[in-house]
Design a protein around this nucleic acid. Structure first.
Length: 885
RNA sequence: GGGCGCUUAACUCAGCGGUAGAGUGCCACCUUCACACGGUGGAAGUCGCAGGUUCGAAUCCUGCAGCGCCCACCA
């Protein structure tokens, strides 16, 4: 039984149209003031913990952000209404190269570890005069301060968008990946891994970006198709004879250290074990056999250089070949001298003359010059009068490795780097991935594939400035040699440190870079090293073990699929290495927003849609509707029509509430079978939506809720009870109708609240919020107890369904007879089996009132005959159109 | 080259073993007292192609094609 009070709501007291912009401003402020979405630190209520993706704030905002973040928010809101203590923080990823570039330009500064201290607090944006001077050099701490300052502005823009969009984030849990806290966490992570032996430093050939001048990790590398050409170049055999190799990188000829052919290739078998002589440089290099050589590719015999590609690195290791690094860290040809131990040559004078032309030149320029030289017969290794280039270059397209943010191909450069050991953890990491629920499930395959195919340990050191410093120093021997074998790390209590500024334990600043003193590791961590700690940063980890225990492992990690191999992978790796567990129970992978031509939106293509004007035009709720109509993991073409549909729903919710709350009746129970039947079916819809939301299927749940709202409520039930709800003669019927309308609306608003937080909050507050004005977003999700109290039955539901069907059948008959909705029907015959007729009669007056039928005849069909409710109207006669006036 | 996903009405998408669905758009009608950002009704699809399993397939299996994504040693 449910009692209703006389309505306290006057529809005239609210605007006749929903003003989204005003509602958004009003309610986002109200929620923040009231702490509606605050995580309750001390509560023992079950928690729901979200590992929010920190957006890169230096990037631009586009609809993709709105799309994926809204999908997380609906889950947060649902769980909150289910009574969970929701932990929903927001981080900002301000760490990394994009920010570094912006800060350099904005303030006209450069970072240089070891630069003198400088107070940046008064530094302003550089003006033209300042730009004429060389950039100011800053030590790392000062540079980081500027980055923090500049990104604070970007973060404001993001925060404004998130608040406008109605993300139910707990803003007291805000963090950024370069903050002191995050730096401390990253360094603690390093110390923990260091103590457990999971990190090591090594001088080795590493993938290197020549523009950013830093090492990069496998996860940040992508293949891009590039035009190239096979160059067929004749080598001499020292004992006599020659052969022709094919290469796409002739500029690496001076770095050639060996020649390889397949062991079973009859053409080259006699050469194995002998020495070849390179053209131009006359370097003697061994010829060895390797099954990795494809006899069908090129000429079937190839030159091995340090380093042309990953196979070169492998051969270099396996065959213990010498290192001849000609490409410098800037991508230009380094100065080397032939005729020395490192660069042997049978004709040093000719070799040096040839090499002199390319010193300091870029890779492409060097290639051009070397090819030109190879066309000259003088360059041949055996002086037989023929040019080493035996044919014109044969164009081809091949995949070349690039740093994902880079513009020029990666080179393999030997350098000292820090690595996290992951190859030895592959099986465990795969196991962790399998323990996690992936939504949608097929995304787990991406994780597995990546983990299985991991080739190298995680290179975490970067030769950059704006990042978390690697907290390491090295001893310098009495003779001035740096001892990389035994790195020194700081006291965990003293973090964060900057080793280029702070001295290691037991040393003083005066001993920096001195014999018998110490030297700093001047590198910073890969930004993923910090980002992969987003759960630990948010919980406080070892700094607040009790809090960490409550929040970790987390419930869900929302993210997009292109960073499974980075963010998801590294976060799983960190949780495993640090605590031997998974970081979260579920991963929710959002799809991409594609442009209407189904192409990925990207700044370079110029097809990016920015979100603000959409919010202005359609309102946040409608934009959210669009985001939430798309299932997890499914890429969706941007379609403004869906925004219109969302807007339509918002307006309908607003108007339906205005109407329902305007109905008045004396208190009375919900007793009419049609009313009970309506609520019974609403219960069904609620149960289905609840089950779907529990499985994170928010989009199908929205479909269920929305469909019931339109078809089950506004288009049918509401129309049928309009008459009874203002009846002067049927007091109990009127009380029942008004109570059921209010009850149904109350429930529907709560079901829609996670999707359309603004309009639902607005409508809720007209009456349902009560004296306390408690937010709908803290109201309970409609549950079984609530419905049980209504004592509905399946028979009621049958009455309601027959009534809906009859309404449709009569409307159809009316339209076909040429009538309109408002036209009265003089007489109508409704033919159905007795059982259906019986159900029909229980709601007859409501049906007739909604369809304006004046006189009804019923006709009982034989039970068991085929019968369709849609064609139950067997006769209809419209009433005459009343005279105008 | 390997893997994953998608292919259903003009458009955007649901359905995933039992007689083809929604919304938009289109057509007709309606100033009906919540809402014209509305209402009522209608037309519209051999569910990418070819096989197979089944009493029955858009739905399961196999193969193929197109699109997209992820991955793969640049000779």
């Amino acid at each position: 039984m449910s009692e209703v009070n006389l309505s306290r709501f006057n529809p005239e007291s609210v605007p006749s149209q929903f003003e989204s912009r005003e509602a958004e401003e009003k309610w986002s402020q109200a929620w923040e003031d009231a702490g509606t979405y605050r995580y309750a630190e001390d509560s023992e209520a079950p928690r729901y913990v979200i590992d929010t993706p920190p957006p890169t704030v230096s990037g631009s905002l586009h609809v993709g952000h709105v799309f994926s973040y809204t999908q997380t928010d609906v889950i947060a809101r649902y769980q909150r209404m289910r009574g969970r203590n929701v932990f929903y923080p927001m981080g900002w990823d301000d760490n990394g190269l994009p920010t570094e570039r912006r800060v350099q330009n904005y303030f006209h500064v450069r970072c240089e570890p070891g630069a003198p201290a400088f107070d940046v607090s008064a530094l302003e944006q550089a003006d033209d005069a300042a730009r004429k001077l060389p950039p100011r050099k800053l030590q790392r701490g000062a540079f980081i301060d500027l980055c923090v300052r500049l990104t604070a502005e970007d973060e404001k823009a993001f925060k404004a968008l998130w608040q406008r969009l109605g993300l139910s984030v707990d803003w007291s849990q805000e963090y950024s990946t370069i903050s002191e806290h995050s730096r401390r966490m990253a360094q603690l992570s390093f110390l923990d891994l260091f103590g457990k032996g999971h990190v090591y430093t090594l001088e080795a050939p590493t993938m290197w970006d020549v523009d950013f001048k830093t090492a990069v990790a496998q996860a940040e590398v992508e293949d891009r198709p590039m035009k190239g050409a096979f160059h067929r170049i004749r080598f001499a055999v020292e004992a006599g004879g020659d052969f022709t190799i094919a290469t796409t990188r002739p500029e690496l000829l001076p770095a050639c250290v060996a020649v390889a052919a397949h062991p079973d290739d009859p053409r080259y078998k006699p050469l194995i074990g002998r020495n070849a002589l390179t053209p131009l440089f006359r370097a003697p290099v061994p010829i060895f056999a390797s099954p990795l050589v494809d006899p069908a590719k090129g000429t079937g015999i190839l030159m091995v250089c340090t380093f042309g590609d990953a196979t070169d690195v492998q051969w270099w290791r396996e065959e213990k070949l010498p290192l001849r690094q000609t490409i410098g860290r800037d991508g230009r040809m380094a100065a080397v001298e032939f005729g020395t131990a490192g660069f042997p040559s049978r004709d040093p004078a000719a070799a040096n003359a040839a090499y002199a032309t390319i010193i300091g030149k870029s890779m492409f320029e060097s290639r051009r010059l070397i090819v030109e030289a190879l066309r000259d017969p003088k360059g041949s290794a055996d002086g037989n009068g023929a040019a080493p280039m035996v044919a014109e270059p044969e164009p081809l397209e091949h995949a070349v490795k690039f740093f994902e943010k880079g513009d020029r191909p990666l080179e393999f450069v030997s350098s000292r780097q820090w690595f996290v050991r992951l190859l030895d953890q592959r099986e465990k990491l795969i196991e962790m991935g399998d323990r996690i629920e992936w939504h949608p499930d097929f995304m787990r395959v991406r994780f597995r594939n990546w983990t299985e195919n991991l080739q190298i340990d995680w290179c975490v050191s970067r030769q950059r400035y704006f990042g978390v410093p690697i907290p390491v120093w090295y001893k310098v021997s009495a003779s001035g040699e740096t001892d990389f074998a035994s790195p020194m790390v700081p006291d965990p209590q003293k973090l964060p440190v900057d080793p280029t500024v702070d001295a290691p334990p037991g040393f003083t600043e005066a001993q920096r870079d001195q014999p018998s003193g110490f030297t700093a590791d001047s590198d910073v961590f890969d930004t993923w090293f910090t980002s992969s700690l987003s759960p630990q940063i948010a919980t406080g980890w070892t700094l607040d073990p009790e809090r960490h225990r409550k929040l970790f492992p987390m419930d869900v990690r929302p993210q997009s699929h292109e960073i499974i191999r980075t963010w998801a992978f590294y976060t799983i790796a960190k949780a495993w290495l640090h605590e031997g567990t998974i970081p979260w129970k579920r991963v929710a992978i959002s799809g991409w927003v594609l442009d209407p031509d189904r192409k990925k939106m990207s700044k370079s293509k110029g097809n990016v849609v920015t979100p603000m004007h959409l919010l202005d035009q359609y309102g946040s709720d409608a934009v959210r509707y669009w985001s939430l109509a798309a299932r997890l993991g499914v890429d969706t073409a941007f379609d403004e029509k869906v925004l219109k549909v969302g807007r339509r729903l918002v307006v309908k919710v607003y108007n339906a509430t205005r109407y329902v709350l305007g109905q008045e009746a004396p208190p009375g129970p919900i007793a009419h079978p049609l009313d009970l039947g309506f609520l019974h079916q609403l219960r069904h819809a609620t149960d289905r939506a609840t089950a779907l939301l529990d499985a994170m299927d928010y989009a199908p749940a929205l479909d269920v809720i929305e469909r019931f709202f339109w078809d089950g409520f506004t288009d049918s039930y509401l129309e049928m009870v309009k008459g009874r709800a203002r009846s002067d003669s049927d007091g109990p019927g009127r009380a029942s109708a008004v109570a059921a309308l209010r009850q149904g609306l109350n429930i529907l608003l709560r079901l829609l609240a996670p999707y359309l937080p603004y309009v639902c909050e607005e409508a809720w507050n007209w009456d349902f919020a009560g004296e306390a004005k408690k937010s709908i977003h803290l109201a309970a999700w409609p549950g079984a107890d609530e419905f049980r109290a209504l004592a509905t039955s399946t028979e009621d539901a049958e009455i309601y369904e027959v009534a809906r069907g009859a309404l449709g059948a009569i409307n159809r008959a009316k339209t076909q007879a040429g009538g309109t909705v408002g036209r009265h029907v003089a007489s109508l015959t409704f033919a159905a089996p007795p059982k259906v007729l019986d159900l029909f009669r229980r709601a007859e007056s409501d049906i007739l009132s909604a369809t304006r039928v004046l006189r009804l005849r019923t006709e009982a069909l034989a039970e068991g005959d085929s019968f369709e409710l849609g064609s139950a109207v067997t006769q209809i006669e419209l009433a005459p159109v009343p005279d105008g006036g």
